[in-house]
């Protein structure tokens, strides 16, 4: 049993990480909590479904989905969030409203039946540590790791990534060396959208596409970001591992429906004990200097 808990805990952590990465990235880079993340995630799911239904090859459909969802993210910033930028409460209300609109719009369109599901990338299974694991779940782990590496590379080794980090740390200094703040925020919303699309394409095949997943994704993203601390990739990974294993443990020893309580408990405990998160480094550094 221990072996299967270890393996499925890892799968769970990878799922959480894919779901939270886009939200956490947008939050870390532009300072805007994009509460429409769940809506964007489902948008990507339905988009991929319809593109595949149109008969496009799998690879092209996925690339198109990622690209269009990134554009959607950018559009959300350019058309709506830009007007309330800087007023935190309004940003939250605006993005939350967009998210709910999208989700309930899909419900209204009637996208709720069993036909809405995405295909596996690879079918089949193998046995590891006496646990049977299917290829899709193992691919999720690989993609989560690849995205983490890509993210580190992007933010530290490319000019654009550095500029986004710079804008997140000191807006006016970034402006003074010629980085445009709306450009940076649009970019970070687009990356957030692209990451949500990657997550959707990887994770949604595990079940049918369900409107309520959208709300759950938002809760997961929020829990992981709060637990891990802002703008810290290591914190994000650590938070995913903690939450992922905590879920497996609660659903093994208590009952599966307690799984959801783990997120809420994590948010509450972290906010009460260490509001900057496990590895929230901004405040820490300020205290040291």
């Amino acid at each position: 049993m221990i072996e299967s808990m270890l393996v499925f805990g890892l799968v769970n952590s990878a799922v959480l990480m894919l779901l939270a990465l886009g939200f956490s990235l947008t939050f870390g880079l532009s300072g805007v909590a994009n509460f429409s993340h769940g809506g964007i995630y489902l948008f990507a799911g339905y988009l991929a479904y319809f593109l595949l239904k149109m008969g496009l090859p799998y690879f092209i459909a996925v690339v198109l989905t990622i690209f269009i969802t990134a554009l959607l993210g950018a559009a959300i910033y350019k058309l709506i969030v830009i007007r309330v930028r800087g007023i935190v409460l309004n940003e939250v209300i605006a993005t939350f409203a967009i998210g709910i609109c999208m989700l309930e719009f899909f419900r209204w369109l009637g996208f709720v039946t069993y036909e809405y599901s995405l295909p596996y990338i690879a079918r089949g299974r193998f046995t590891i540590f006496e646990t049977t694991l299917d290829y899709q779940r193992s691919l999720i782990i690989v993609v989560a790791l690849l995205l983490a590496v890509f993210l580190w590379f992007f933010t530290h080794r490319t000019k654009t990534g550095l500029a986004l980090l710079g804008m997140a740390q000191d807006e006016y200094t970034a402006l003074a060396v010629g980085i445009d703040s709306d450009w940076a925020a649009t970019y970070s919303f687009a990356i957030g959208g692209a990451f949500a699309a990657i997550a959707a394409v990887m994770i949604l095949p595990l079940g049918i596409i369900n409107i309520n997943i959208g709300y759950e994704v938002l809760l997961i993203a929020l829990a992981v970001t709060v637990l891990g601390g802002l703008e810290s990739t290591k914190g994000l990974i650590l938070a995913c591992i903690i939450l992922g294993y905590a879920q497996v443990i609660t659903s093994t020893f208590f009952a599966p429906h307690w799984k959801e309580a783990v997120y809420l408990a994590a948010i509450l405990i972290v906010l009460a004990v260490k509001p900057s998160g496990l590895l929230g480094k901004f405040k820490e550094l300020e205290e040291r200097v």
Partner: peptide, 13 residues
């Protein structure tokens, strides 16, 4: 190009 007062830098870079 402006170099702002109080030596602002990107502190995590």
């Amino acid at each position: 190009v402006l170099c702002r007062e109080r030596h602002p830098v990107f502190r995590d870079l």
